[in-house]
């Protein structure tokens, strides 16, 4: 009970002071909306919209989640308010989950922007919403924890932002969002198999189009393992770098 109160207060405070602020809400909508419109205008047929949707969902989730952690973690760490959270009688794991759940929710929210837009253009029958939600949630967690790893490995906010771009932009091309992984040069394919979004895209594509490279169970399993690994490494990093 006590730890739930602590958890929900940390999450609630982050939502109020960061995520629900008008600039973030609008960026969270404007960005995904902008690139969705950009891609959809060129696609004349419902088939195209369906093909594009998974990539757009993943792009929205990736950017929505990772961009917030520079503020909620690195910035608070610099201003020392993070120290007070470290003093709270809760485990470091619950604390980090509380600090990241806002970003995860924000990512899930972002995922639905292209979906709503696509729904305005075409009807979307035959989408497996359960697999879709599973994919969005796992992907939101994976990319949040990727952002977390960056945020806890640097000390300045601008470093966090620079480093996440270093990861994010190559991922657009390497994880099969718009360019099929099969079309990548041989030597790049191992890289793409290390990137969480590769499995997220495949999982969401399965949900939307019914086609995928890997079985959805395999995709979900790999993604879950990556989620666990990223969280564990981030927490180790906090212990090593912050509790010196």
């Amino acid at each position: 009970m006590g730890s739930w109160i602590a958890f929900s207060s940390i999450l609630g405070k982050d939502i109020r002071t960061y995520y629900a602020k008008p600039p973030n809400i609008s960026w969270g909508i404007v960005f995904p909306l902008a690139w969705s419109v950009m891609f959809f205008v060129k696609s004349s047929t419902p088939v195209d919209v369906r093909t594009l949707l998974p990539g757009l969902v993943v792009l929205s989730v990736l950017f929505g989640t990772t961009s917030m952690l520079a503020v909620t973690i690195t910035f608070e760490r610099r201003r020392r308010s993070f120290e007070r959270l470290l003093l709270a009688p809760m485990s470091l794991t619950s604390l980090m989950l509380a600090k990241t759940s806002g970003a995860i929710l924000f990512g899930v929210f972002n995922a639905f922007v292209p979906v709503v837009l696509a729904r305005l253009l075409i009807v979307l029958p035959g989408v497996n919403w359960i697999i879709f939600l599973l994919g969005v949630l796992l992907l939101a967690m994976a990319s949040t924890f990727l952002g977390l790893l960056v945020a806890v490995s640097v000390s300045e906010v601008f470093e966090a932002q620079t480093f996440s771009n270093f990861f994010r932009f190559p991922m657009i091309f390497l994880s099969g969002m718009f360019l099929p992984v099969q079309d990548l040069p041989h030597w790049l394919r191992p890289v793409s198999s290390l990137l969480p979004p590769t499995y997220g895209v495949d999982l969401i594509r399965q949900a939307v189009t019914g086609q995928s490279r890997l079985n959805w169970i395999l995709n979900a399993t790999v993604l879950s393992l990556m989620v666990g690994l990223l969280l564990a490494v981030s927490i180790r990093q906090v212990k090593r770098r912050w509790i010196m």
């Binding site: 602590a6 405070k13 002071t17 020392r80 308010s81 120290e83 007070r84 709270a88 009688p89």
Partner: peptide, 24 residues
């Protein structure tokens, strides 16, 4: 601590209540 670690953007009362919540 030697330097304050409360949240600048929260009100005094909110800061206190947030602290209390951290302890359940």
């Amino acid at each position: 601590p030697d330097e304050s670690n409360l949240y600048d953007e929260l009100e005094g009362l909110e800061n206190l209540c947030f602290s209390g919540a951290l302890y359940g």
